[in-house]
Protein backbone atom coordinates (compact mmCIF):
# COMPACT_ATOMS: atom_id res chain seq x y z
CA UNK A 1 0.00 0.00 0.00
CA UNK A 2 1.29 3.45 -0.87
CA UNK A 3 1.50 5.95 1.90
CA UNK A 4 0.43 9.55 1.34
CA UNK A 5 3.87 10.73 0.25
CA UNK A 6 4.26 7.99 -2.33
CA UNK A 7 0.71 8.65 -3.55
CA UNK A 8 1.36 12.36 -3.94
CA UNK A 9 4.66 11.79 -5.72
CA UNK A 10 3.07 9.41 -8.19
CA UNK A 11 0.68 12.13 -9.37
CA UNK A 12 1.55 14.47 -12.23
CA UNK A 13 2.96 17.89 -11.54
CA UNK A 14 5.58 19.36 -9.28
CA UNK A 15 5.53 19.29 -5.50
CA UNK A 16 5.63 22.39 -3.38
CA UNK A 17 6.55 21.49 0.17
CA UNK A 18 6.81 23.86 3.11
CA UNK A 19 8.87 23.51 6.28
CA UNK A 20 7.95 25.26 9.47
CA UNK A 21 9.08 24.94 13.08
CA UNK A 22 6.42 23.63 15.44
CA UNK A 23 5.63 26.11 18.18
CA UNK A 24 6.66 29.14 16.16
CA UNK A 25 5.73 31.96 16.14
CA UNK A 26 3.23 30.90 18.85
CA UNK A 27 2.94 27.62 20.69
CA UNK A 28 -0.51 26.77 19.31
CA UNK A 29 0.09 27.77 15.68
CA UNK A 30 0.97 24.24 14.52
CA UNK A 31 -2.43 23.05 13.35
CA UNK A 32 -3.69 26.42 12.04
CA UNK A 33 -0.52 26.68 9.90
CA UNK A 34 -1.03 23.15 8.58
CA UNK A 35 -4.66 23.86 7.66
CA UNK A 36 -3.81 27.10 5.93
CA UNK A 37 -1.01 25.45 3.93
CA UNK A 38 -3.36 22.73 2.72
CA UNK A 39 -6.13 25.22 1.88
CA UNK A 40 -3.69 27.20 -0.20
CA UNK A 41 -2.60 24.27 -2.30
CA UNK A 42 0.69 23.23 -0.72
CA UNK A 43 1.35 19.56 -1.54
CA UNK A 44 3.32 18.40 1.48
CA UNK A 45 4.53 19.78 4.80
CA UNK A 46 7.58 19.21 6.97
CA UNK A 47 6.87 19.94 10.60
CA UNK A 48 10.08 20.83 12.41
CA UNK A 49 10.62 19.50 15.90
CA UNK A 50 12.69 22.24 17.52
CA UNK A 51 16.15 21.37 18.88
CA UNK A 52 18.55 23.33 21.04
CA UNK A 53 21.52 22.68 18.74
CA UNK A 54 20.37 22.51 15.11
CA UNK A 55 23.72 21.93 13.37
CA UNK A 56 22.50 21.95 9.79
CA UNK A 57 20.41 25.09 10.11
CA UNK A 58 21.19 28.70 9.38
CA UNK A 59 20.20 31.66 11.56
CA UNK A 60 16.50 31.89 10.58
CA UNK A 61 15.55 28.32 11.51
CA UNK A 62 17.86 28.41 14.54
CA UNK A 63 16.06 31.47 15.85
CA UNK A 64 12.65 29.91 15.22
CA UNK A 65 13.75 26.79 17.16
CA UNK A 66 14.97 28.87 20.08
CA UNK A 67 11.65 30.75 20.17
CA UNK A 68 9.64 27.55 19.87
CA UNK A 69 11.51 25.99 22.80
CA UNK A 70 11.00 29.15 24.83
CA UNK A 71 7.31 28.93 23.97
CA UNK A 72 7.32 25.52 25.62
CA UNK A 73 7.31 23.20 22.62
CA UNK A 74 8.29 19.59 23.39
CA UNK A 75 7.95 16.31 21.54
CA UNK A 76 5.02 15.27 23.74
CA UNK A 77 3.35 18.65 23.25
CA UNK A 78 3.66 18.40 19.47
CA UNK A 79 2.15 14.91 19.43
CA UNK A 80 -0.69 16.21 21.55
CA UNK A 81 -1.34 19.09 19.14
CA UNK A 82 -1.32 16.72 16.17
CA UNK A 83 -3.59 14.11 17.77
CA UNK A 84 -6.64 15.04 15.69
CA UNK A 85 -4.85 16.57 12.71
CA UNK A 86 -5.97 13.89 10.26
CA UNK A 87 -9.60 14.95 10.78
CA UNK A 88 -8.86 18.17 8.95
CA UNK A 89 -5.60 17.80 7.05
CA UNK A 90 -5.03 15.19 4.34
CA UNK A 91 -1.77 16.17 2.61
CA UNK A 92 1.38 14.18 3.42
CA UNK A 93 3.03 15.19 6.68
CA UNK A 94 6.69 14.67 7.47
CA UNK A 95 8.34 15.28 10.83
CA UNK A 96 11.77 16.80 10.61
CA UNK A 97 14.11 17.06 13.53
CA UNK A 98 17.40 16.08 15.06
CA UNK A 99 17.95 12.61 16.41
CA UNK A 100 18.57 13.32 20.09
CA UNK A 101 15.00 14.31 21.05
CA UNK A 102 13.74 11.21 19.20
CA UNK A 103 16.25 9.05 21.08
CA UNK A 104 15.11 10.47 24.42
CA UNK A 105 11.44 9.96 23.58
CA UNK A 106 12.33 6.41 22.60
CA UNK A 107 12.62 5.55 18.92
CA UNK A 108 9.91 2.91 19.03
CA UNK A 109 7.49 5.04 21.09
CA UNK A 110 8.17 7.94 18.73
CA UNK A 111 7.39 5.86 15.64
CA UNK A 112 4.25 4.48 17.27
CA UNK A 113 2.95 7.99 17.99
CA UNK A 114 3.72 9.07 14.44
CA UNK A 115 1.74 6.14 13.09
CA UNK A 116 -1.20 6.82 15.39
CA UNK A 117 -1.32 10.44 14.25
CA UNK A 118 -0.87 9.73 10.58
CA UNK A 119 2.64 11.04 10.00
CA UNK A 120 4.04 9.65 6.75
CA UNK A 121 7.76 10.15 6.96
CA UNK A 122 10.69 11.37 9.00
CA UNK A 123 13.69 13.49 8.14
CA UNK A 124 16.41 13.18 10.77
CA UNK A 125 19.50 14.73 9.21
CA UNK A 126 21.89 13.49 11.87
CA UNK A 127 20.71 9.89 11.81
CA UNK A 128 23.21 8.48 9.32
CA UNK A 129 22.39 5.89 6.70
CA UNK A 130 24.60 3.21 8.25
CA UNK A 131 22.98 3.53 11.70
CA UNK A 132 19.52 3.58 10.19
CA UNK A 133 20.12 0.44 8.20
CA UNK A 134 21.73 -1.32 11.14
CA UNK A 135 19.36 -0.41 13.98
CA UNK A 136 16.25 1.53 13.04
CA UNK A 137 14.88 0.51 9.66
CA UNK A 138 12.61 -2.30 10.96
CA UNK A 139 10.92 -0.15 13.57
CA UNK A 140 10.38 2.75 11.15
CA UNK A 141 8.90 0.49 8.50
CA UNK A 142 6.81 -1.46 10.98
CA UNK A 143 5.02 1.79 11.77
CA UNK A 144 4.50 2.77 8.16
CA UNK A 145 7.12 5.47 8.27
CA UNK A 146 9.62 6.16 5.59
CA UNK A 147 12.94 7.77 6.42
CA UNK A 148 14.05 10.46 4.01
CA UNK A 149 17.75 10.88 3.33
CA UNK A 150 19.69 13.90 2.17
CA UNK A 151 22.22 14.16 -0.64
CA UNK A 152 24.44 17.13 -1.45
CA UNK A 153 26.53 18.22 -4.45
CA UNK A 154 29.47 16.48 -2.73
CA UNK A 155 27.71 13.12 -2.38
CA UNK A 156 29.38 10.54 -4.59
CA UNK A 157 27.40 8.72 -7.27
CA UNK A 158 28.00 5.43 -5.47
CA UNK A 159 26.55 6.79 -2.25
CA UNK A 160 23.58 8.38 -4.05
CA UNK A 161 22.75 4.92 -5.39
CA UNK A 162 23.09 3.44 -1.91
CA UNK A 163 20.76 6.12 -0.51
CA UNK A 164 18.33 5.54 -3.37
CA UNK A 165 18.19 1.88 -2.40
CA UNK A 166 17.43 2.72 1.23
CA UNK A 167 14.77 5.31 0.35
CA UNK A 168 11.04 4.62 0.03
CA UNK A 169 9.62 8.04 -0.89
CA UNK A 170 11.92 10.71 -2.21
CA UNK A 171 15.52 11.86 -1.96
CA UNK A 172 16.01 15.20 -0.28
CA UNK A 173 18.46 17.02 -2.51
CA UNK A 174 20.34 19.71 -0.62
CA UNK A 175 20.87 22.40 -3.27
CA UNK A 176 24.39 23.45 -2.33
CA UNK A 177 27.08 23.01 0.29
CA UNK A 178 25.38 25.09 2.91
CA UNK A 179 23.27 25.32 6.01
CA UNK A 180 19.60 26.24 5.54
CA UNK A 181 18.56 29.66 4.27
CA UNK A 182 21.93 30.64 2.88
CA UNK A 183 22.03 30.87 -0.90
CA UNK A 184 21.55 33.96 -2.95
CA UNK A 185 19.86 32.36 -5.91
CA UNK A 186 20.79 29.45 -8.16
CA UNK A 187 23.34 29.48 -10.97
CA UNK A 188 24.49 26.99 -13.58
CA UNK A 189 26.40 24.91 -11.02
CA UNK A 190 23.08 24.26 -9.27
CA UNK A 191 21.18 23.42 -12.46
CA UNK A 192 24.06 21.19 -13.55
CA UNK A 193 23.86 19.29 -10.26
CA UNK A 194 20.06 18.93 -10.49
CA UNK A 195 20.44 17.73 -14.07
CA UNK A 196 23.28 15.34 -13.22
CA UNK A 197 21.30 13.59 -10.48
CA UNK A 198 18.14 13.58 -12.56
CA UNK A 199 20.06 11.80 -15.31
CA UNK A 200 20.93 8.98 -12.91
CA UNK A 201 17.40 7.59 -13.31
CA UNK A 202 16.99 6.84 -9.64
CA UNK A 203 14.14 4.79 -8.20
CA UNK A 204 13.07 7.68 -5.98
CA UNK A 205 12.11 11.12 -7.19
CA UNK A 206 14.17 14.07 -5.98
CA UNK A 207 12.88 17.02 -4.05
CA UNK A 208 15.21 19.98 -3.64
CA UNK A 209 15.66 21.89 -0.40
CA UNK A 210 17.93 24.63 1.02
CA UNK A 211 18.08 28.02 -0.69
CA UNK A 212 14.61 28.06 -2.28
CA UNK A 213 12.96 31.32 -1.43
CA UNK A 214 10.89 32.63 -4.38
CA UNK A 215 9.31 31.73 -7.70
CA UNK A 216 12.60 31.92 -9.59
CA UNK A 217 14.50 29.53 -7.31
CA UNK A 218 11.45 27.24 -7.12
CA UNK A 219 11.26 27.07 -10.92
CA UNK A 220 14.99 26.40 -11.30
CA UNK A 221 14.89 23.72 -8.62
CA UNK A 222 11.88 21.93 -10.10
CA UNK A 223 12.99 22.10 -13.73
CA UNK A 224 14.82 18.79 -13.39
CA UNK A 225 13.28 17.43 -10.19
CA UNK A 226 9.93 16.48 -8.76
CA UNK A 227 9.60 19.30 -6.29
CA UNK A 228 11.07 21.76 -3.86
CA UNK A 229 10.96 22.54 -0.15
CA UNK A 230 10.87 26.04 1.27
CA UNK A 231 11.86 26.59 4.90
CA UNK A 232 13.73 29.71 5.95
CA UNK A 233 11.88 32.01 3.54
CA UNK A 234 8.56 30.75 4.90
CA UNK A 235 9.65 31.26 8.51
CA UNK A 236 10.78 34.78 7.64
CA UNK A 237 7.36 35.47 6.13
CA UNK A 238 5.63 34.08 9.25
CA UNK A 239 7.77 36.34 11.33
CA UNK A 240 6.65 39.38 9.33
CA UNK A 241 3.04 38.61 8.39
CA UNK A 242 1.94 35.68 10.53
CA UNK A 243 -0.50 32.98 9.41
CA UNK A 244 -2.60 35.42 7.39
CA UNK A 245 0.39 35.90 5.09
CA UNK A 246 0.29 32.27 3.91
CA UNK A 247 -2.07 32.68 0.88
CA UNK A 248 0.03 35.43 -0.65
CA UNK A 249 3.25 33.62 0.09
CA UNK A 250 2.15 30.41 -1.60
CA UNK A 251 0.82 32.33 -4.62
CA UNK A 252 4.09 34.25 -4.91
CA UNK A 253 5.90 30.93 -5.32
CA UNK A 254 3.41 29.11 -7.48
CA UNK A 255 0.55 31.03 -9.09
CA UNK A 256 -2.85 29.30 -9.07
Amino acid sequence: MKNRIQQKLSEDGKILSIYFTAGYPNINDTVPILRSLEENGVDMVEIGLPFSDPLADGPVIQASSTTALKNGMTTAKLFDQLKEVRKTVSIPLVLMGYFNPVLQYGVEAFCKQCEAIGIDGLILPDLPLAEYNLHYRPVFECHGLTNIFLITPQTSEERIREIDKASRAFIYMVSSASTTGKTSGFGTEHSDYFKRVSAMNLENPQVVGFGIKDRETYNTATQFTKGAIIGSAFIKMLNESGIKGIPNFVRSIRPV
Binding site: L55, A56, F99, P125, D126, L127, P128, E131, F149, L150, I151, T152, Q154, T155, S156, R159, V174, A177, S178, T179
Partner: peptide
Protein backbone atom coordinates in the same frame (compact mmCIF):
# COMPACT_ATOMS: atom_id res chain seq x y z
CA UNK B 1 30.87 7.12 19.67
CA UNK B 2 29.90 6.71 16.03
CA UNK B 3 29.36 9.51 13.52
CA UNK B 4 25.89 11.06 13.83
CA UNK B 5 26.39 13.75 11.25
CA UNK B 6 24.22 15.31 8.58
CA UNK B 7 24.95 14.13 5.05
CA UNK B 8 26.55 17.50 4.27
CA UNK B 9 29.48 16.52 6.49
CA UNK B 10 29.75 12.95 5.30
CA UNK B 11 32.39 13.48 2.58
Amino acid sequence: GGAYIPEMLYP
